[in-house]
């Protein structure tokens, strides 16, 4: 379900924009030119952009202007890319990252 604000009482209506296809965790989504990864995914109802590397707890955007790094994702294989600062491009492949092993921590995930 789309949450885009096409019409705004003061800012006016959005002009025609090019639609782009991109992937997030293997599923295909549509973005419009000028949308960030975070914006396009939120418009599609996706709030969880990654999981905490140690606990697996879900995380999404916090500051939306690049300060906090809470929205870090992998883009086309490159890690630690900020979803709030990165515009979607055609065919972009975004993944959320996963829980990492903590072999030196007592009671950690390493087997």
């Amino acid at each position: 379900m789309s949450q885009r604000i096409f019409h705004h009482p003061v800012l006016g209506s959005m002009e025609e924009r090019t639609a782009l296809q991109f992937q997030f965790n293997g599923a295909v989504y549509t973005a419009y030119e000028g949308e960030t990864i975070a914006g396009a995914l939120l418009a599609a109802g996706v709030r969880t952009l990654r999981v905490h590397e140690e606990t697996g707890a879900p995380r999404g955007i916090y500051c939306n202007i690049g300060h906090c790094y809470e929205c870090r994702v992998h883009v086309d294989g490159i890690p630690t890319v900020r979803a709030c600062m990165t515009l979607v491009t055609e065919g972009m492949c975004v993944t959320a990252g996963s829980v990492l092993p903590t072999p030196l921590k007592k009671g950690g995930h390493a087997k």
Binding site: H8, H52, G60, I61, N64
Partner: peptide
């Protein structure tokens, strides 16, 4: 840290710049 919690400025940029609720 739950998804859906954000700074007030984040909501401003998402609403008026990204035009997403």
């Amino acid at each position: 840290t739950l998804p859906g919690v954000m700074s007030i400025g984040a909501a401003q940029v998402m609403t008026n710049v990204q035009r997403v609720r």
